[in-house]
Design a protein around this nucleic acid. Structure first.
Lengths: 205, 205
DNA sequence: TTGGAATATTAAACACTGTTCAATTATATT
DNA sequence: AATATAATTGAACAGTGTTTAATATTCCAA
């Protein structure tokens, strides 16, 4: 059935074209300001066609969202090699920030943007399964730190959430441009500097 | 000049009506999904009138933004009474979180939303003057802590930014609904629990 | 090779959006 | 009461997401 195969391939190709166009437009103009017509223009098809490949605009976002978590998961993969949980925790933070700043559009999509969370609320999609998987990994590492005697007197859930919040807070303030107004000496490196402070804090715990 | 006075008063009244309607709609539906026609409907005027009171939709946002910082500044006012900088820092965090969760719409407007930062970039409006003022206050308190021997080995700017990021991260994850997907035992109180962890961390520094 | 079925794609339409502006209504002054 | 001024309107423009009937293309069997 070579023909059917080719058709599947062609359909897949257009799907990828739509996703690529949508992604680059989301980066350029943001989710809200990207229109279906914009996407259709870029791939040189009529707007209607998009609704034969995706239910609606949110589903396009949703698909990219999932891809984002997969990319992040891939990057976190190397952490398995790090034996010491404290070192792993620090490396996790570094990779997290690196990913966020290098793919700020994706990060925005994954952790900041408002649009389509309701999509994920009821259905347990792969998407936030990945997402909560990432958080579970963090918790796992924090747990190992606790077991080793670090972070004495801390609650696992609360501490894990706080750690996540710290790195998320830094990158999201940066991404949403709340750092350049704040009159800091080295605004450009503030996230890196902040992360160094974060590492120092971890060492003292 | 009683007539002119009344006219000014009436104009001011309609301005306030527009702002009140816009605010409540922003809370209900969010900034993007609130239309000028929605606002006009609520105050029972035609859409056009709004453009005689505000330059555009962004200016409405901008005005509310400023009000948000004023309200926050007011709340931070009581901190002047707290002598001990460490205690003041903790209280600051508590007030910040309290404000953010009680006025999540405003907080969203002030620190998360993307829309109209370009408005503030060139002009030095009262708005982010207030905003950076809040951060300057934080820095001032952190400085006093450093002077008292706390936070040894830390850089002022970096540590202040990290502290701000931690509280911002917690409330923004909550506001943008990234906490209810994460499968935590007590999701409802996670920000409070996280803040307790934060306080414990401060004590160990 | 051709006819018909299946599929892919389109263009037009619907109800919405922010914004502008000429026309209208209401108010104030002379 | 007539006129000047200010406030308000509603229609229009160009854009949005989405649906759908019509069209174009591709496929397979006769």
């Amino acid at each position: 059935m070579g023909i059917a195969d080719r058709k599947v391939r062609e359909k897949e190709e257009l799907t990828q074209q739509i996703l690529a166009a949508a992604k680059s437009l989301f980066i350029e103009k943001g989710f809200e300001k990207t229109s279906i017509r914009n996407i259709a223009d870029r791939i040189e098809y009529s707007p209607g066609i998009i609704y034969h490949y995706f239910k609606d605009k949110n589903e396009i976002f949703h698909t990219l969202h999932t891809e984002g978590f997969q990319e992040m998961g891939k990057r976190m993969g190397i952490l398995a090699a790090v034996e010491n949980p404290m070192e792993r925790l620090k490396a996790m933070g570094r990779i997290y920030i690196e990913f966020a700043l290098e793919n700020s559009d994706m990060y925005d999509l994954m952790f900041i943007i408002e649009a389509p969370m309701h999509h994920l609320e009821d259905k347990d999609d792969d998407c936030w399964t990945e997402g909560s998987g990432t958080f579970k990994n963090l918790k796992h590492t924090v747990k190992q730190c606790l077991d080793k005697g670090y972070f004495e007197g801390h609650n696992l859930d609360a501490l894990s959430f706080m750690i996540w919040s710290t790195v998320h807070g830094m990158v999201s303030l940066k991404i949403r441009k709340r750092t350049d107004v704040i009159e800091l000496a080295e605004e450009e490196q503030i996230v890196e500097k902040g992360f160094e402070s974060f590492l120092k804090v971890l060492d003292k715990l």
